[in-house]
Design a protein around this nucleic acid. Sequence first.
RNA 1: GGGGGCGUGGUCUAGUGGUUAGGACGCCGGCCUUUCAAGCCGGAGGACACGGGUUCGAUUCCCGUCGCCCCUACCA
Length: 418
Amino acid sequence: MRVRFAPSPTGALHVGGARTALYNWLIARQSSGSFVLRIEDTDRERSTPENVAQVLDALRWLELDWDEGPYSQAERRPRHSEGIERLVAEGHAYLDEGATRLRVPDEGATVVQDVIRGEVTFEHAAIDDFVIARSDGSPLYNLAVAVDDRDMGITHVVRGADHLSNTPRQILILRALGADPPVYAHLPLLHGPDGKKLSKRHGAASVQDLRDAGYLPEAVRNYLALLGWGYDESTEFFTTEELIERFSLERVSKSPAVFDEQKLRWMNGHYLRQLPPEELTRRLEERLGRQGLEPAVRIAQEKMQTLNDFWQLAAFLVEPQPDDTAAWEKVMTDGAPERLRRAREALASAEPFDASSIESALRAVVDELGVKPRDVYQPIRVAISGGTVSPGIFESVAVLGREETLARIDRALERAAA
RNA sequence: GGGGGCGUGGUCUAGUGGUUAGGACGCCGGCCUUUCAAGCCGGAGGACACGGGUUCGAUUCCCGUCGCCCCUACCA
């Protein structure tokens, strides 16, 4: 099995293209076949080196490795020209105002055998003699695709449903060239939340955006696999090995899907929590360009859904805490300073200064004061973290260390007295 | 306009000629007598786009309608 992913480099790789690449990659790996990467860059206006680099970067980040390429379609111009000349020479195409058109039969029909959609019939009467080469001789999309797929020995063309209507044209060219068409599979399109075809206006829709937002490539692969495909009635999590083993084009759905970042977040959180703390730390330290994050990572991990959540949740453990006026006013009510003072005393003598003895010390304060746990814990949380949300309070205090914790509480006490 | 595709709760999906139409995200509530975006438990929400037909019986088969999307470029 030889498949190809043939994006036109118009900018960042969007999730729709990423899913197409993933599906191709999965069936190539499943069949021990080849995954060919071909850049459809015949439109020089849009195909810049930067755009091509973005596509390659996105695929690398997703860890979808290709076996051949990237081939440049533009560089294959000589082959396209040969095809055009042959079609004209054999009477399958003709010149019209300088451009070259394919002669489409008036009668009959071309049937596309689609793995996902079954037989799709296109009457020739509804297909005009379309242009395959501009008047300057340069090849157009349908011609280039047909010639390249043939030359590259592509056996299965798996692409978006937006190409279904172009398929009979490509088959017509292939047949005129004396070639047998490959097997086709047209994937359902991805739409935005508004039901329209996914575009750049729909938020975090590119692979680049997902990486920047702190998603894990393995989670993105799992989520994307599920956009248009389902294995059974309840399995949602698949390792990449399982995807390779279980994926099948026959089970791909026909209807368009909407990219739902909420569900991706949920799934990403699941993957994040399964990562060994050392591994998560490694990724975070590399991403943030910092060292010594492991203690903070260990206690923040269970609440993170994306890598970016870490900083929001645990920055106070690594840097001076920011002030959050709203949190302060909500928590630092009448008796709060006194409760905080009592907590400070307990923390000053807790020994050793670890989560469990800190917990005992603070629970004792809660008992002595006869208040609700939160009445003691929240003022501490605001004092050390600046906000009302943080990892577990005992663990947070332990990671911060006695000296820094007491200093921050003292500062809060001063502020409360002022 | 012509051609093509698609149509299961807000979203992603499973499914069958006879099921209480299954799972998940999200949402709501509760529990974790520390917050929470984490975890656990429970709940609301769909008669399967609509109308015919075939059938003892259709979400599942056929036809039509409607809606959405794609192609119809000397873009890809």
